[in-house]
Design a protein around this nucleic acid. Sequence first.
DNA 1: CATGAATGAGAGTTCATTCAT
DNA 2: TATGAATGAACTCTCATTCAT
Lengths: 242, 242, 242, 242
Amino acid sequence: MGRASARPLTRREKVERKEKALLSAARALFLERGYDGVRTADLAKRVQISEGSIYSYFKNKSELMQGVVVDFWREIAEGAHAAIAAGDPPMEQLHDLAVYHLATVIDNFDFLDLTFSLRRAGEDIIVSRDDVRTYTSVFDEIMNRAIDRGDLASGTVIWLVRDTFYGTLEYSARTILGRSTKSSTDMNLVVDNLLEQIRRMYGANAQSQVNSQSPNEAITQRLERIAETFEVTIEQFKRQNS
Amino acid sequence: MGRASARPLTRREKVERKEKALLSAARALFLERGYDGVRTADLAKRVQISEGSIYSYFKNKSELMQGVVVDFWREIAEGAHAAIAAGDPPMEQLHDLAVYHLATVIDNFDFLDLTFSLRRAGEDIIVSRDDVRTYTSVFDEIMNRAIDRGDLASGTVIWLVRDTFYGTLEYSARTILGRSTKSSTDMNLVVDNLLEQIRRMYGANAQSQVNSQSPNEAITQRLERIAETFEVTIEQFKRQNS
Amino acid sequence: MGRASARPLTRREKVERKEKALLSAARALFLERGYDGVRTADLAKRVQISEGSIYSYFKNKSELMQGVVVDFWREIAEGAHAAIAAGDPPMEQLHDLAVYHLATVIDNFDFLDLTFSLRRAGEDIIVSRDDVRTYTSVFDEIMNRAIDRGDLASGTVIWLVRDTFYGTLEYSARTILGRSTKSSTDMNLVVDNLLEQIRRMYGANAQSQVNSQSPNEAITQRLERIAETFEVTIEQFKRQNS
Amino acid sequence: MGRASARPLTRREKVERKEKALLSAARALFLERGYDGVRTADLAKRVQISEGSIYSYFKNKSELMQGVVVDFWREIAEGAHAAIAAGDPPMEQLHDLAVYHLATVIDNFDFLDLTFSLRRAGEDIIVSRDDVRTYTSVFDEIMNRAIDRGDLASGTVIWLVRDTFYGTLEYSARTILGRSTKSSTDMNLVVDNLLEQIRRMYGANAQSQVNSQSPNEAITQRLERIAETFEVTIEQFKRQNS
DNA sequence: CATGAATGAGAGTTCATTCAT
DNA sequence: TATGAATGAACTCTCATTCAT
């Protein structure tokens, strides 16, 4: 299917094509059956090559699966960047990111679940936290811009918002997937609700109150710092006495 | 060694005891090595029975692992019920549930990760979503009561709140685990912030005055909690020095 | 064949029997095809067990082959001790050891060749020099006694004699094997010649009169040996005809 | 790189050069890893040709390895001829041959070990004893000349001397290699000791005794012939009766 | 002649499950 | 019911050899 181009493929292209075919078949199998469920024999059959040939493209089953995961994260990270319009105000970008993320998570829910469980599977650790970090950095950039512009309160603790943002979306994905119909109404509802929540909690332009709240928040944070200092000091003190 | 009890165990008791030992050893191994990493041989060795005997208690490995997962969820569901004081106002129960859930997720993060990724090749699918449902019903009960009492707005869409509640907590668990120190301050911060968010978004008096008293309330709660931390720490310290 | 004993075998005995069968089949295959030529599949077939069962008895193909080699050396070391009569004068013991060694080397030539080449074969080194050392220590003991008794010159450098002793015998084995008929006459010739050489070179009275009596002695010994050969052959012949 | 020679190589020369490079690389790999350790892929890489091209020069791996062994023996046979000065008296030539052989064996010990163990499964047996025979003919020539000249007793049984000669040297090589330092003193000691042994045992000019011994030796040999005749006769007789 | 990707048989090893004791 | 030796199918990976280019 689809051998349209007149020019015959160069060797390099052929290799890349096979590599991609392998990667995509591996991803499919990974989704169907989990890491240990992927059999090199099945893989070879799907890509129509011999089992031995797999090892011309990847050193290992392990490295092949690495490739699958890395590819996946690169893809959705690129998707995230593409999803937000460059010139838009941060809160609108945040909205678009939420929509994109929710859709992506719904579409790839199994993959994500599987991915996170790879850490334990057997001898070889596979997913690196970095792959995920690169992805979530998009969020952080938006947040920083929102705070800089004064759209969000200056005292906003980014990681708290991030946890709510991704956490809510991912859990909602589960909820939505649990239903028979994946209504876009539900998805919109989730996103709007989430954005509203963030605005109410951290928005700078929430009338008067925001002003009165931020300082308090600042105070709270200062107190926390003091508390932490205390904890650390006491622990050091304990260690010295043991 | 260890045959202390005067009355010899009945056959039924003996069977149950072995079954439990098997389940608990299987859980440990599951955590250490993932589903495919659990070897019946290791299992038998840990429980001090023969490999063949496993099949007297469970039809096969798959059903044994089923049992592990079901047991786990029953346990934490019971824990959730125990964590909330019966007579307390709903919002306080919600707070306690959040604390319990966050702690539980942190303690059993690997297990949960593993659990959700348990879809295996053809033969045997393992985790049912129902196990989780039973657990989250605690939340729904609290919410319904809160709405009935007028603590939360009557229009509140419970599943939306639920997604934010569990989603935020679980994602935060990941964040907290990612750090080197699992400070209880962070955990409190996450919970308080989450509760505050829910109050602002769905509180009965949310529309008009959301912000008027919340900040102060939040500060007060935070201070109380810090005080508690101090008290606990200092008391431990005293105990060590006495 | 040969399951005569009334008493059923204990478990321990059965295991040992299988282990021995495995070891002996492995030795045969090793001789036929060399280390890399031994296939676990063939091995299993010969011993009438499943391939997997091999691994109940030995951790590895490698460890199994280890066992083969160690066993072999233990056997021939025991044979060497048994071959020399305890009370005999050293030079007679040396003679018996030579006869035993030559016969052993001829019978196991391939094995020895193979054994020495194992050092390089692949990743896992197998034969230890110690196995050989234990064996050659029999020679050293005899030599020391011969020197102590004054049968051999006190200045004799044992390792030089040892090299000639084993070297000559082993090379002669090659020569004898190269011929179509492995005549025992040749074997006797080699041994007598070797012993005579040692006597002439290292005999206590070597300097002055080395040659005065040796030739006669040599002839006498040769004749005795030929007589022996006849007697044995004729006796066998009688037995067959009775 | 390396296109120095003015005249371009003829096709024939090019082929021979590649063949030699292949052979030499194969020998190196054979030494490093043993027969089964030689991979055609490694070989191709070392000689800078493609894997497939090997099969233009040699029918298969087995024949290539044949070539390696044959080449090796031809080389050291040539070395042996070169090592002995043409006009020298036989016993001096024997001394030089001993020195050469000991050094060669020490330098190529692994190769020799490996060589002798080359009997492989069904398909391909590799080393022929003839390769060795060509080499040892040098020794026989010297011996014959020594006997003709009267340097050694006329009754001397050449193969017995040959076995002692090569056997002692090869076993000594093992001994010397077993030590950390390959002292030339040890090597000289071995050679001198060996030569002295041969002189004492077979030397014609060993005063009076030699004369008195040779006849006895002759008698012994005659008796042996008779014995052998007997053995053969008896064996034939047995066969007829079975 | 040269290439090197593709092959595919076959290697050693693992492990859930069975079954005679 | 308990045992644990035996099973054997299935696994990942290797490598000499081929053949279209």
